[in-house]
Amino acid sequence: MRVDLIDKEPSGPIQAVWEGARAIAAGFALTLKHLFRKPITEEYPEFKRPLPSRTRARIVLTRDPDGGERCVACYLCSAVCPVSCISMQSAEREDGRRYAAWFRINFARCIYCGLCEEACPTSSIQLTPMFETCERDILKLVYEKEDLLVNHGGKDPDYNFYKHAGVVTAIGGKGEHAGEDQPVNVRSNMP
């Protein structure tokens, strides 16, 4: 290659001027050609490009197929979050269901890494393609549970954690969850 280049090196001033003019003309020709082509740029926000559903942006808390809040406030997402922008308080409903009394994400801090979604054992917390969250007042980027809850199951519409866990809630008692036997009879003497 290098040897090649050396071979083609301009040999005199006339040659150099000729080469320069040729390059300029080629550039203008290309520009002119594109001037009359259909543009491929999409104007944002006039046009919003559909993003893949796995794009990582604005986070939501989803619901299970029965409409119940999925989040059981297990604290795993807040533990895994590398910038500690999730905080919550767990509590118990009348029927024994564990849930988040409050749940807060500070989107001013979130780096949309998706680790929370990966950690979530209930498919509750999910990142969505919704990335337009700019605000002038930074406090408006602090989202509470009401702001985060959506009424669908997101990318995992069918899962209901409480149908699989062993704890007693309105969803099911002992032995009524997926893959469970009836509770043992402790008083039985049968072998």
Binding site: V72, C74, Y75, L76, R98, P121, T122, F161, H164, A165, G166, V167, H177
Partner: peptide, 12 residues
């Protein structure tokens, strides 16, 4: 073992 860790207070 039940599928309880997220709602189990021993978890962690």
């Amino acid at each position: 073992h039940p599928h309880d860790c997220p709602v189990c207070d021993e978890g962690g």
